[in-house]
Amino acid sequence: MTPPSRRAFVTAATASLLVGCGGGSTPPSPEPSGSAPGESGESGRTVRALGRSVPVGLRIPAIRVDTRVMRLGLDPDGAMQVPPVEADDRAGWYRHSPTPGQVGPSVIVGHVTVGAYGDGVFRHLARLRRGDAIVARLENGTSARFAVSGVRTVAQADFPTEDVYGDVGRPELRLITCGGPRSGDGYRDSVIVFAALSAGSP
């Protein structure tokens, strides 16, 4: 071996050692794939869903509604309960639906009229237009702000159950009351407001 070849050998050996050591640092490559659960990049949605918190109040500035919200369940016949007919009318949240801001259609109902007491809390619900704001105050002190995406008046006989209660995969809100012409001691139609979460405030 001539001196140059010795140098070459030493250099090659050193290089192979360095490469071998560097190879030990290649395992970090799985980390990026492991951080793939950072699919939390889904959080890149415009609005994040909120945690569960029961609504205690509802404000609809466009129709000057500011009311307390009670909890409602089901009657024995399977129909949704409604708030009591009284002078101090208020809205009611259907407790088998998500709370406002959770993923799914949160359902809040209110009377259009309360018999001898006159107008109900949702008397002017049909006047809402696309983009109008609805703010639900939650039990934990936060609020969920929704924007109206549509208003429909449908015959109660053809109530769109799937559109109202079906899965939607994002935080939405449904406000329901009666509407249309009177029939007997009630109303022929239902007014349904569809809204989507626009912001959640602390």
Binding site: G78, V85, G110, C178, R182, G186
Partner: peptide, 12 residues
């Protein structure tokens, strides 16, 4: 899912 439409209108 409740049955039917909620009865939210008591006519005066």
């Amino acid at each position: 899912v409740p049955s039917g439409a909620p009865d939210t209108g008591v006519a005066s």
